[in-house]
Simulated scan of single mutants.
Amino acid sequence: MHRPSHQNAAIEIRDVTVGYTEGKPVLSGLSASFKGRSLVWVQGGNGAGKSTLVELCSGYLPPWQGTVQINGMDAGTPEARSTRRICRTQPALYPDMTVRDHIVLASRCARADMEAGLIRAVRLGLEPWLDHAAKTLSTGNTRKLWYVMCTLGDFDCVVLDEPFNGIDQESVEKVAEEICQWGGERLVLLISHTLPPGLTVTDDFHLHP
């Protein structure tokens, strides 16, 4: 269901303890509440659990204790996943598929307008590479394709893990423009060591190891 205002966007984390190895939690007793239309800058040093927070919000890392909800739904449910987007820091592409085919596939999965995705890709400088295989892309172009794929269609919440890493300054500015626009319309959690000039956050959230 389309929600133009995205006013009910929410990520709720309650008393969460989670990790990857039994007996060695990465996050212990974490509680956090992010609601409404806002751009939240998530900060923390190495090992603080920023990537673990991303995976909690994705619903693919179940907490050992506590709950994670997206818009009032368990983060691991298909219903919750359809209302949020996750852009991890490490791209995962099919080496022999073209840039265009990646966008077509991701658009179908997100039930999004393919042309809108292609327009965004072109805006980020990918037009000369649309019919090239992903394995031929530079690191920067790979990351730009991944960012577009992960943020297609209509969504209430988006979590972005270091979206500016490895891309050229002109594209950094264009991505920052998109993120600013999203922050005025929906809920954005942004993990980034530094902020580009002109990117103003609504709030910040600190994770401590």
Rank of each mutant, 00 (worst) to 15 (best):
I70F: 00
G76R: 15
G66F: 00
N71V: 13
P78M: 14
I86N: 03
I86Y: 09
V54R: 03
G66S: 11
G72T: 10
T52N: 03
T52E: 02
S58W: 01
T83Y: 12
V68D: 06
A80N: 11
R84E: 10
G66R: 06
G76E: 05
S51R: 10
P78F: 03
P78S: 00
T77K: 11
M73V: 14
V68Y: 00
M73A: 12
R81K: 15
W64L: 06
R85L: 03
T52D: 05
E79M: 10
D74Y: 09
T77M: 04
G59F: 04
G59P: 13
W64R: 07
G59E: 14
P62G: 11
S82G: 00
D74E: 12
E55N: 11
S82M: 06
G76T: 03
I86G: 02
A75F: 13
V54C: 08
A75P: 13
A80W: 07
T77E: 05
P78Y: 02
E79Q: 15
S58L: 03
R81L: 02
S51W: 11
I70W: 10
P62A: 06
C57R: 13
S51A: 11
L61D: 15
G59T: 06
M73F: 13
Q65C: 08
C57W: 12
G66H: 02
G72I: 14
Q69F: 09
V68K: 12
Q65D: 13
T77I: 09
T52S: 05
P62D: 01
T77G: 12
R85S: 06
V68H: 08
E79P: 04
M73R: 14
R85D: 01
Q65G: 05
W64S: 06
S58F: 06
G72R: 14
A75S: 13
S58E: 12
M73K: 08
S58R: 01
T83D: 12
T83N: 15
M73G: 07
I86S: 03
R85H: 00
E55I: 00
I70G: 00
E79H: 10
G59W: 07
L56T: 04
C57T: 14
R84T: 08
R81Y: 07
Q65R: 10
W64I: 10
E79T: 11
C57S: 13
T52R: 03
R81V: 06
A80T: 05
T77F: 05
P78L: 04
S51V: 14
R85V: 00
L56W: 00
S58C: 04
T52M: 03
A75H: 10
T67L: 10
A80K: 04
Q65I: 08
L61C: 08
V68S: 14
V54S: 13
I86R: 12
P63R: 07
A75V: 11
A80F: 12
S82P: 04
P63F: 09
E79D: 13
P62L: 07
D74H: 14
K50G: 07
L53P: 01
A80Y: 12
W64C: 09
P63M: 03
G66P: 05
W64Q: 08
R81E: 00
S58A: 14
R81Q: 05
T83F: 14
T77D: 01
T52V: 02
G76S: 11
M73L: 15
T83K: 13
A75W: 11
E55H: 02
I86V: 07
R85C: 09
K50R: 02
Q69G: 03
R81W: 05
A75K: 15
P78I: 08
A80V: 10
S58T: 04
